[in-house]
Write a protein that binds this DNA or RNA. Structure first.
Length: 127
DNA sequence: ATTCTAACA
DNA sequence: TGTTAGAA
């Protein structure tokens, strides 16, 4: 199938499908006219890519663990592929650090807002 | 009618 | 990522 068909079947734009190819996520064949020829299996491949992208993994990592993902009917589940388990857990700890930083920022903002709404003495707040 | 590449009011 | 120009 050509890029237009894959785009319709997956809901992913042609632009993005070409981008996935640049990132090494998809390897469509090339017809003599230069058009990309995708395999039927690329439909599920795109679903897998979407799932991994939503999990926050960078395309560089997805390229390496895509072969670990398989279809189980409607849901995409990571089979026991050590390579993938490793990368997913790394992503998880990375996210935890990010959450910590954001929580710290929130607390800093909260304390400032508290002070702003709570003048030392009886002065009324602005507005 | 479709796709391709490259580039950005 | 979208959009678009110009070519095939």
């Amino acid at each position: 199938m050509r890029i237009g068909d894959l785009a319709r079947q997956t809901g992913v734009s042609r632009r993005l499908l070409r981008y996935y190819e640049d990132q090494g996520l998809l390897r469509p064949l090339r017809l003599p006219n230069g058009y990309r020829e995708y395999a039927e299996t690329d439909v599920s491949e795109v679903r897998h890519i979407r799932a991994l992208l939503e999990a926050g993994l960078p395309t560089s990592v997805i390229t390496r663990v895509l072969h670990c993902v398989h279809d189980d009917g409607e849901v995409v589940v990571p089979s026991s592929c050590p390579e993938m388990m490793d990368n997913l857990s790394r992503e998880r700890t990375r996210i935890n650090l990010e959450i910590s930083r954001l929580a710290a920022s929130r607390q800093a903002l909260d304390s400032m807002l508290a002070i702003a709404r709570e003048p030392a003495d009886g002065r009324r707040s602005p507005r």
